[in-house]
């Protein structure tokens, strides 16, 4: 009865000016407040809507250092039933292949699930890799950019509408499956304090280490990551004229600009 859904969420630095340590090539996280990746909140919202409609459960999973518990608490506040944090020193330094490996192992251990939902991409790495990679590890069908999911209980499948650059597509997909949600599809619901309290009382967040998971440590973290950042360099600034009109008169400013653009043959009204 209903759908047992797993949602992948990531706890990401909330800033537009995150920097990279030029020596190590890693993210400087100190002093930067984190949030749940906004596109994952969209994914959580989709999961909760499906639960509202068809019944079932929603479990949020994340691979991250222990601080990401706050992220799981946030989505539990939204109505997620259970949170699992895969956290282990051996998972550190993972690229997307190694991250998706651990997440796939977490999903395998959960065992009873119908649907895995992911966000469009994360705002700190923007790879949009994890959904497809998890599907590959688990040999599941998958689709990206979903805007609507309909459960066809009798067929053990879902109907998914998704958006591309210049088309919509509708797929029928056998469950279990992995679906990532197009960004901005929904406004995520607000947190309810009562949900959070319940979560605290019932200990719905678990931390799983490599010992809890049936995995090869050599496939996780830095060791399981074929890609490494071999260098960082600065994007050279594009030289610009930097001419600023100095008077505070919109009419004159407009005239000045149009003249400049005409002079250079850039516009042809």
């Amino acid at each position: 009865m209903g759908l047992d859904i797993i949602v992948g969420i990531k706890w990401v630095p909330n800033t537009t000016s995150v920097n990279i340590d030029p020596k190590t090539g890693t993210l400087i996280r100190e002093g930067i407040p984190s949030v749940v990746n906004p596109h994952d909140l969209t994914a959580v919202e989709m999961a909760l809507r499906l639960k509202d409609k068809y019944g079932g459960t929603v479990t949020a999973i994340s691979m991250a250092p222990p601080s990401a518990i706050s992220g799981l608490e946030h989505v539990i506040g939204m109505g997620v039933d259970r949170g699992i944090l895969a956290s282990d020193r051996a998972f550190a330094g993972a690229d997307t292949l190694a991250t998706s490996y651990v997440l796939a192992k977490v999903i395998e251990k959960i065992e009873k699930y119908d649907l895995v939902i992911m966000g469009h991409e994360t705002i700190d790495s923007s790879t949009a890799h994890i959904g497809a990679q998890v599907a590959s590890w688990l040999k599941l069908p998958y689709i990206y950019y979903a805007t609507d999911i309909e459960y066809e209980e009798n067929k053990e499948s879902i109907k998914v509408k998704r958006i591309l650059e210049n088309a919509y597509e509708i797929y029928r997909i056998k469950l279990p499956a992995v679906v990532s949600i197009a960004m901005h599809t929904f406004e995520p619901r607000r947190i309810k304090v009562s949900n959070k309290l319940k979560a605290k009382l019932e200990n719905v967040i678990e931390i799983w280490t490599s010992k809890d998971l049936n995995l090869d440590i050599n496939c996780a973290g830095l060791r399981g990551s074929p890609t490494v950042v071999s260098a960082i360099d600065f994007v050279p600034k594009v030289p610009r004229k930097n001419l600023i009109f100095q008077e505070k008169d919109p009419k004159k400013a407009a005239k000045w600009l149009i003249e400049k653009l005409l002079e250079e043959g850039l516009i042809d009204p």
């Binding site: 090539g25 074929p226 994007v235």
Partner: peptide, 17 residues
Amino acid sequence: RPPFGAWMLAHIKTRDR
């Protein structure tokens, strides 16, 4: 690829594979 910050480019190398 441009990572965080956009003024920095990350050079990504694939080892062993």
